[in-house]
């Protein structure tokens, strides 16, 4: 044993780490459990609608439900394809619909900004 080990700060006991890890993972799981049961369906249907117009990669979709005291937000974060592909996708949308509201988000780095029209508040619901 080296003399330096006396000065090393004591590592956190593993039981403390166990508790912290549990608190984090279980907070997440409990939120999912008490969430509205239409949520998975809603997510799927929203994605299906978007996929009709834009070629999205299912692995680059992040869906988050935050449950606040009196206001819950559903946040959709969808990474869009590169600008070139986006343009042609949007052209297709324009043809399909004269005023394509859903696809007018300002893509930056091919990513819809969090406050773009598509994700703007997502679904807000007051209880």
């Amino acid at each position: 044993m080296s003399i330096f080990s006396f000065f090393r700060s004591a590592p956190r006991p593993s039981a403390v780490q166990a508790k912290e890890r549990l608190q984090i993972v279980m907070a997440h799981e409990r939120a999912g459990r008490t969430g509205p049961d239409y949520l998975p369906m809603l997510q799927q249907e929203l994605l299906a609608v978007i996929a009709k117009y834009i070629d999205i990669d299912q692995n680059k979709v992040e869906v988050k439900l935050d449950r606040g005291g009196d206001c819950s937000t559903l946040e959709l974060n969808i990474e869009l394809p590169a600008r070139e592909q986006l343009k042609s996708a949007m052209a297709a949308v324009k043809q399909a619909k004269p005023e394509p509201k859903a696809a007018s988000g300002e893509g930056e780095d091919g990513k819809l900004a969090a406050n773009g029209p598509l994700t703007n508040g997502g679904v807000k619901k007051r209880h």
């Binding site: 006991p13 593993s14 039981a15 166990a18 508790k19 279980m26």
Partner: peptide, 14 residues
């Protein structure tokens, strides 16, 4: 006591 196992109180709290 050695910090190797979750305490009763930890489990109860969780």
């Amino acid at each position: 006591e050695k910090g190797e196992m979750l305490k009763v109180d930890d489990v109860l709290e969780i």
